[in-house]
């Protein structure tokens, strides 16, 4: 019954095969294309255009991009803004995320499990601008009345919003990692008379540690790259939230992040101006941070597969 392929079929086969190949490669092309574009716009500064000083760029807290007399481009305050909001967000979301993942994978029944997973995925579907609204209106009032501060758009506000946004990533990847631990481990531990807590603490968490670390790192990557919600919730003030007086870190100060600065200022700048190039340089800087985080997370996940 089987006939040999007609010419038409061979041609169609060839076209479809190459089309699919193109789709596969296109992702790589896009990533490199974006990197090339961002680098091209920002790079002239790195090669000394306009007497640009990279050390000063990274270590000066003075951000005066539109000054008439003396424009200064120092992003230290912005770096610390991003770092403080992201770190606090991770500190909040990791205990909740891990706890939720352990509960979903080890404790709850199948019906509750399905329900919880759907709701957590729903959390990921909320647009970031809506999170920003919650920060701007609801959280602002709560923080003002709970902590008695005059202005509620703060590091803490942004961090809580970001923590909620990172939570779905942390929960679902951690849960995958816990589920990947073979049941024989659980059975062996229980056979030796381990309690549930001992099982989780001594067996499951060590066995799944690479996956859990990857979950946290991807959460950090999300936190660093998020723009709209932090733009709205952190108060957008060029300010270093760390100083020499106790408690050294002021979670109730307003800050501004790297991403929010690009979003707020890029629309105005003339193409090719120093301000424009500096914003692209910030973009390169962000790209490097998230690239490193994702790479490390990827290597960690690869580590699990080998075991």
């Amino acid at each position: 019954m089987r006939k040999s392929l007609t010419t038409r079929q061979i041609v169609a086969e060839w076209i479809i095969e190459n089309l699919i190949r193109l789709c596969g490669i296109s992702a790589i092309l896009f990533v490199f294309g974006i990197f090339f574009f961002v680098f091209r716009e920002g790079a002239p500064l790195l090669f000394g255009e306009g007497g640009f000083d990279l050390i000063k760029f990274l270590t000066s807290p003075e951000w005066y991009p539109s000054s008439n007399s003396n424009p200064r481009y120092g992003i230290l305050a912005l770096i610390l803004g991003t770092a403080s909001v992201s770190c606090l967000a991770v500190l909040i979301s990791v205990p909740f995320g891990l706890g939720a993942a352990i509960f979903i994978s080890e404790f709850c029944g199948p019906k509750l499990k399905e329900g919880l997973k759907i709701v957590i995925e729903l959390l990921a579907a909320i647009p970031s601008v809506v999170w920003g609204f919650i920060g701007l209106t609801l959280m602002k009032g709560i923080i003002e009345s709970v902590f008695g501060v005059p202005f509620g758009l703060t590091v803490l506000n942004g961090a809580i919003i970001l923590a909620l946004m990172c939570l779905p990533i942390i929960v679902s990847i951690s849960e995958d990692a816990l589920r990947a631990v073979p049941d024989s481990y659980r059975e062996a531990a229980q056979g030796l008379g381990a309690t549930r807590w001992q099982l989780i603490y001594r067996v499951l968490l060590p066995a799944a540690k690479n996956g859990l670390l990857a979950a946290v790192l991807l959460g950090v990557g999300r936190a660093v790259g998020e723009t709209m919600a932090v733009l709205m919730a952190t108060g957008h003030a060029v300010n270093i939230p760390i100083d020499g007086t106790p408690p050294y870190f002021h979670a109730l100060d307003s800050v501004r992040t790297l991403t929010a600065t690009i979003a707020a200022e890029l629309g105005e700048t003339a193409q090719g101006s120093p301000h424009y190039r500096v914003l692209f340089l910030i973009g390169i800087f962000l790209f490097c941070i998230t690239f490193t985080i994702n790479l490390v997370a990827d290597l960690v996940v690869r580590g699990i597969r080998k075991e």
């Binding site: 000054s67 007399s69 003396n70 305050a77 758009l153 060029v238 501004r256 707020a264």
Partner: peptide, 23 residues
């Protein structure tokens, strides 16, 4: 922003950092 800066601080003046910059 530009007009207020010029009217209050003169042509070459700059704002103090740390203001909440709204949109």
């Amino acid at each position: 922003y530009a007009y207020f800066r010029e009217a209050i601080l003169g042509k070459d003046g700059d704002f103090k950092l740390g203001s909440r910059d709204l949109h």
